[in-house]
Simulated assay, not measured.
Amino acid sequence: MSRRRTPAARTAPAATPRCTVTVCRGCCCGTAKVPGVDHAAQLAMLRTDLAGTAQVRVVDCLDACEQADVIVVQPSPAGRAAGGRPVWLGLVNDPGATADIVSWVRAGGPGLSDPPEILDLYGFSPSRRIRRGVED
């Protein structure tokens, strides 16, 4: 009895390494404690506009509540090799700032593209303890 052979399973090509955009949605970020912000629309915009370009992940709390809403843009492996480091952005409470983040990440993000100058207003440096939890 002969067996019918099926073609070997094809493996999908490895995904291109990309930036990671971490969005805080803890005790303050993404809640009514920051009034007048459509938090769901912000997250939807990031997920939709960065689909296939960056990994968007949501975390419970980045422990930088005084900066709510907080977004961290981590470089791709190529960006890190080029000297890029994670960029912490706080008070990201308007659609224009979110759009600027999307444009920057689409252009390559940290290490590969300079951010729009307006994002300098949103940058902050958290303590080492806080950074370690996200960047490692």
Results as ranks from 00 to 15, higher is better:
53 T>L: 05
56 V>G: 13
131 R>C: 00
98 T>E: 03
6 T>C: 13
12 A>Y: 08
55 Q>H: 13
95 P>R: 15
15 A>Y: 05
118 I>L: 11
133 G>E: 14
84 G>P: 09
89 L>C: 01
8 A>Y: 10
129 R>I: 03
23 V>L: 06
88 W>Q: 09
23 V>I: 10
7 P>M: 06
85 R>G: 13
101 I>D: 03
127 S>Q: 12
73 V>F: 02
111 G>H: 01
114 D>M: 06
58 V>C: 00
31 T>W: 14
75 P>E: 06
96 G>Y: 04
129 R>C: 04
77 P>G: 08
80 R>H: 06
43 L>D: 03
96 G>P: 05
84 G>M: 05
93 N>P: 01
16 T>M: 09
78 A>C: 10
74 Q>G: 12
39 H>M: 00
72 V>Q: 04
94 D>H: 11
99 A>I: 15
35 P>D: 09
1 M>E: 12
59 V>Q: 03
135 E>A: 00
76 S>W: 05
80 R>M: 02
37 V>K: 04
105 V>W: 04
30 G>F: 05
84 G>D: 02
85 R>K: 15
89 L>V: 00
2 S>A: 06
74 Q>S: 15
77 P>A: 11
61 C>E: 04
86 P>F: 03
57 R>S: 07
22 T>G: 10
72 V>D: 01
43 L>E: 05
105 V>S: 02
106 R>I: 04
87 V>L: 00
30 G>N: 00
